[in-house]
Design a protein around this nucleic acid. Structure first.
Lengths: 177, 177
DNA sequence: TAAAGCATGTAATCCGTTACATGATTTA
DNA sequence: TAAATCATGTAACGGATTACATGCTTTA
């Protein structure tokens, strides 16, 4: 139901093909909701059957362009207005931190350092996107806000990892002497 | 495979029943990896079949206590050492922010405010846990670190929401005049 | 004795990932 | 003409959620 509404949201802005939708989802939405094309195509077919979208044109390479119907537009906005988001979240990297007592302090520190590398890389990616994005047009303001959260999130994560790694490394050094 | 290793990690500390494992997972691990008892029991059965754990005792109310085997201990530590965590994450609440251009600025601001309430509540829960937890024993140091991340995460999230809501509200006020 | 909590399971369904499969068009 | 990119699909599998189902033990 989340994928469905994400697609409706994109189509509410303007008509697109399944390929384009997949491409957009795996660019801007990738960090908040990863999607595969193998989910998108069947979902689009189902949404046509449900009257939420309709095929507008067909281009070369058997391309199909879909547009949102009034029923579809109603469905997304009602979803946004009448339902609350789930806050469930899975974070394997953090779950592993719970288990770090199973390995040596040196190995635990190495794990935290490798996580740090990951988040520094992500942060750099987001900074690059922020730098090249002229934030002006309507829907882009919200994208920009999500991007801003991404910058803050990874920065805070890196700080926390530095704090945690410093602690563990201090302890590892003490154990070695 | 994540659930499996989470269970092995808990059993590596000391033997427990499926019920206890479920209870622990839905307390401390709930924020990073939500689990249902309907997943735990079949997984335990499979792990016995795979020789990673074994039934140690049976108590009243047909309780079964499982302990980790050397093979099981080897499996968790190898998982920790030889594999890298997936960083995929789904955040429905954030995905909705991308779609907020579909509703009025007032409605968007209300959404951000309700998210703020949620995160303030979570933060308070975590602060309560932090206050009542004497952080001393071995595996607890890592739990404490995860908890510290939780505190930082929700604080940062609240600050971001305040920043975003202020922006939208300023705009809503301008549109109204 | 009723309610709350302990304790374990199965079944149906949904959602997501990975792999398989095909073919047209553009560009180097 | 080969490679890259556009473009759309299906199938198998695995993991997670929800609902169904049962029964014992302690406490109020």
């Amino acid at each position: 139901v989340v994928l469905r509404n994400a697609l409706l949201g994109l189509l509410a802005a303007h008509p697109r093909s399944g390929y384009e939708l997949t491409r957009i989802l795996s660019r801007s939405f990738a960090y908040v909701w990863p999607v595969n094309h193998s989910q998108v195509y069947p979902e689009l077919a189902q949404m046509v059957a449900d009257g939420l979208i309709e095929q507008r044109e067909s281009g070369p390479r058997r391309k199909k362009v879909y547009g949102i119907t009034p029923a579809g537009r109603h469905a997304v906005t009602e979803w946004l207005r009448q339902t609350r988001p789930s806050h469930d979240s899975r974070n394997e990297a953090l779950l592993r931190v719970f288990l770090l007592w199973l390995v040596s302090p040196a190995e635990a520190a190495a794990y935290l350092r490798s996580e740090m590398e990951f988040h520094r890389g992500r942060l750099a990616e987001l900074q690059a996107i922020a730098a090249e994005t002229p934030h002006a047009h309507p829907a882009a303001r919200w994208s920009r806000m999500v991007l801003e959260w991404g910058l803050r999130y990874h920065s805070a994560y890196i700080e926390w990892l530095e704090w945690a790694a410093a602690q563990v490394e201090r302890e590892a050094a003490a154990a070695a002497s």
